[in-house]
Design a protein around this nucleic acid. Structure first.
Lengths: 357, 357
DNA sequence: TCCGCTTGATCAAGCGTTTTAGCAAAGTTA
DNA sequence: TAACTTTGCTAAAACGCTTGATCAAGCGGA
């Protein structure tokens, strides 16, 4: 009674500004249109075998418009028994710059199929994670995407099994009871190496990471595969290891130069960035004195180094999207372990084009 | 009848594996415990003025445990009339590396108050945006965070007004009817300049962006404020402009060197990164020949350049968190326009410490 | 004129909770 | 022992929607 009584006395027909505290309901629309709630429901959901007179349909739609009616999704879901949610629990996806693309891809794909994303960042905290999953279960999500910010093996939290789920960017040793989607590291490593091979290089170093991970093994395997396909013998001497960041790459310069190679493939873009500095200090020019490729395609770095870095994309967006498709049963799961998503090559100026030998 | 009938004949008491299609309901728990649904509800929600015998409470909890009961959040929300959701619509937050922190901050803060985040990335697509907001309204979100990936003025979509909302990282000219939270660009610019002043520099260049934006004006103002506080006259000659990326920074090198300054403050870290390359090519050492500070604190870049770059943080995480607090009424809105969040200085090695003059 | 069919719309049950009002039994007081 | 009070629990309505069953007209055919 006290506070503002907006346009209360005003004539009807004006698109009423809805009162936030008490949203318009189906019943109110029904009354306004002079029909039953059942009829309104039928009109709204455009049921094909519902018989509604054109005139009635018009009146209902008009009432909906005039009152600014919004269906209550909670009520809808309650009766249908299942929500239109997909949960995404991430251990740090939002934190890490480029892995945010997982969210993005999942979002787009989910949306495309009428689902909304419910996300939770757990920062690796197990309790938070349990709460997050519980919350999602209470919202009766269609399923849960469980994702990690870097490609690795993971434990499957027990409660996750209460729902349909898909591992994204990670996998479980117990692959029989879980579906998963991960980047194809080996193919990526092969592609990276091939960029160099196409550039005419035969003696190619690989600076791998010191940190154990599927990426470490996969990227090395790709390197070996590519060499083998070209009939080049694998020389373990050409494989160095360093911590996978700028400092690591910079620090590996000396050792690299002893190898007397014409090209180098780095475990990731950050190492390549550090290596750029190291090479420059030795007065070496990229790509003429030495060609470089990275891995990850971390835009801010790769696209803007001088010269821009050739690399291979970690398909985070696709991982998210594929995760959703797998969850919804639109893609088939691979019987033999995780579904592998390709890491496409991105060629830039850090490798010169080969003027046919 | 046909498909798998899991442990149907087995004795009770074993923690039953829940059947996904038909989750356990309150009523089932009630029956199992031999009480009414009302009692179960009271036990679950630990109502203080509910009178429940210890023994009964025990029986109920035991039944909940045994059946693996999960409350149905939809039903809960239906009766309470309001959900525990906060919507976040972003025009590209998930896309842009560092702005993903907005999501992260919002998530954490929302979670802290019992809210879940419902996110939608619209990529600037107006139709998508309308659908996203509609979806959120249908879920009866507590409110909506409307955020942009870079600080700018924005139109407020009409439907947004159907809900409580807060603008994050953007603002509306019409600030009377909207709450907003943005980074304090002027303070940030001042802090950046002060790093240089503290380093003993008096003649400091500023490479601003060519792109019009609140950041352009604010960061310049901060620069001027800092100089004025030190009694140094502002010299417009010392302000250059370039496109705000690596190439822009690199390209500004020549002009910068003509200015004969001992220090330079760049509009952002990416420009600083390009400038590093330019300066190096001229054989100039950072910080000895010239000191550099950036803006944004884009970790991948700033922390790992050689030498690491002193800069000022764009407080994305805080923007998200503050947005939620503002929405929930935990923080007070500023009567005069948007709430400003501080951009803290991050000092690294690109500015030498001043050995007191 | 009566029957059956089609059309257009309504009734009412039900989805899984919360919550208020109320009831029976036990306890307290006098 | 009668009259309250307290304790422990339940009945039932309500939240906003969907949907199968029903029903009243109107109509054509016999």
């Amino acid at each position: 009674m006290i506070s503002q009584e907006k346009n209360s006395g005003s004539a009807a027909d004006v698109p009423i500004t809805t009162d936030r505290a008490h949203p318009v309901t189906l019943r109110e629309v029904a009354e306004a249109a002079g029909v039953s709630t059942a009829t309104v429901s039928l009109v709204i959901n455009k049921k094909k075998n519902a018989r509604i007179a054109d005139e009635t349909r018009r009146r209902v739609q008009e009432a909906i418009r005039r009152l600014g009616y919004r269906p209550n999704a909670m009520a809808k879901n309650l009766v249908s028994g299942t929500s239109k949610f997909i949960g995404l629990v991430a251990d740090g996806v939002a934190t890490t710059p480029f892995a945010g693309q997982i969210i993005h891809g999942a979002q787009d794909e989910a949306w495309k199929h009428g689902y909304a994303l419910l996300i939770a960042n757990t920062e690796g905290n197990v309790d938070l994670e349990k709460d997050a999953i519980a919350m999602m279960l209470e919202y009766k999500v269609r399923g849960i995407l469980y994702s990690t910010w870097f490609h690795r093996a993971t434990e499957i939290p027990a409660t996750l099994r209460e729902s349909d789920f898909v591992l994204v960017n990670c996998f479980s040793p117990d692959s029989l009871t879980s579906r998963a989607v991960v980047p194809d590291e080996a193919q990526g490593g092969k592609s990276a190496t091939e960029i160099l091979l196409r550039g005419g290089h035969r003696r190619i170093a690989f600076i791998n990471t010191t940190t154990p991970a599927p990426a470490k093994d996969g990227r090395l395997k790709g390197y070996m595969d590519a060499l083998e396909a070209e009939g080049i013998a694998f020389d373990p001497e050409l494989v160095l290891e360093a911590y996978p960041d700028q400092e690591g790459g910079y620090g590996a310069t000396e050792d690299l130069l002893k190898l007397n190679v014409s090209a180098v493939y780095c475990y990731n873009d950050r190492m390549a960035m550090g290596l750029y500095d190291g090479l420059r200090e030795h007065g070496l020019a990229i790509p003429d004195d030495i060609a470089v490729v990275g891995f990850d395609n971390q835009e801010v770095i790769a696209a803007h180094l001088r010269p821009p870095l050739s690399t291979v994309s970690l398909p985070h967006y696709e991982l998210g999207a594929a995760g959703v498709r797998l969850l919804l049963g639109l893609d088939q799961a691979d019987v033999e372990g995780p579904v592998k998503i390709a890491c496409p090559a991105v060629e830039r100026a850090s490798v010169a084009v080969h003027s046919a030998a």
